[in-house]
Amino acid sequence: MVFEFEVQGGDFATAGNASSQIKKILKQLNVDHRDIKRIVVALYEAEVNIVAHAFKGRIIANIDTSEVRIRLVDEGPGIPDIELAMQQGYSTASSEVREMGFGAGMGLPNMKKNTDEMHVTSVVDKGTTVELIVFINQPTT
């Protein structure tokens, strides 16, 4: 199943709407609540990043029985140095973003922690694409 959402850059009032919708879908599909939490925390961090840094973006969620694959494609300034951006504590967020309770340089590391795979590609002055992959319904080890 594929679901698609639009995200507006700079619009903090609606930041999280897409993540909220996807959480509802995952609940309806009876995905384990631990898996849901990992997915939506990573997704919400990524959605907030679009609102904080980009002009606009799209979220494409691909849900099947064994994995959830979410692509977040934005049009924005891009990330010049992804390795640096991945470092805990590194942030280019504005004071407005910090006032919203974010911008501490923790989003990308936390997205990585909560996913099984994460891929970030970026072109400066064009935009950034983040892919989040979480395996679901795995037998517990």
Binding site: F12, A13, A15, G16, S19, S20, K23, H33, K37, V40, V41, L43, Y44, V48, M100, G101, F102
Partner: peptide, 15 residues
């Protein structure tokens, strides 16, 4: 002490 939508959204995502 952060009273905005994002505090509620954060709670939602974090159960």
């Amino acid at each position: 002490g952060l009273a905005n939508n994002q505090a509620v959204r954060t709670a939602e995502m974090s159960d």
